[in-house]
């Protein structure tokens, strides 16, 4: 019952846009629901990156601690994917992700997804294409932030 509802939900997300029903079913086999309350860390830099999340509700903050200062570099909100370091070895989280407003998310078991990607490269291509889209979007945003265009 729970798996079915994840499948339905996944099917409506941008992440699954264009995927076949079989692929979505395949993917939802690696997914579960997760909830995080305010102040909780969804990820910690240095931890193995074996999960990634698709945020459904709430807001988190991708943070980096430098010296004695913590900066927020991106604030994921509903529809955003959190976590992509699992796609390449050594699969270690690079940033802290702290919950700002209680988050409800679809929680993907990254090892499970990776295994399926290895087994079925066509499926893997679809998944990596979507992750790459996220990475490109974040990279472009980061470059714009670096420009400090409002200064």
């Amino acid at each position: 019952m729970k798996t079915l509802s994840i499948k339905d939900l996944l099917g409506r997300t941008d992440f699954a846009r264009g995927m076949s029903a079989d692929d979505i079913e395949f993917l939802s086999g690696c997914a579960s629901f997760a909830r995080f309350s305010r102040g909780e860390f969804m990820m910690l830099a240095g931890d193995p990156c074996d999960h990634f999340y698709l945020i459904r509700e709430g807001k988190a903050a991708v943070e980096v601690e430098s010296g004695n200062q913590v900066s927020v570099i991106y604030a994921p909100s509903p529809g955003d994917i959190v976590g992509w370091s699992w796609t390449m070895p050594p699969s270690v989280c690079r940033y802290d992700v702290r919950v700002m407003d209680s988050v409800s998310a679809i929680d993907f078991d990254a090892r499970c997804v990776l295994r399926k990607c290895e087994e079925d490269n066509r499926f893997g291509y679809h998944v990596y294409k979507r992750i790459l889209e996220v990475v490109i979007e974040r990279l472009m945003a980061t470059r714009v932030q670096m420009l400090d265009m409002y200064s």
Binding site: A61, V62, I73, A75, S77, D148
Partner: peptide, 23 residues
């Protein structure tokens, strides 16, 4: 509203304005 960078005190969006368009 979004800002390019913020400390922890900021509870709003951090990122660039283009990321707000899709919603």
């Amino acid at each position: 509203v979004t800002v390019d960078r913020a400390s922890r005190k900021w509870l709003g969006n951090v990122g660039v304005i283009t990321q707000l368009v899709a919603a």
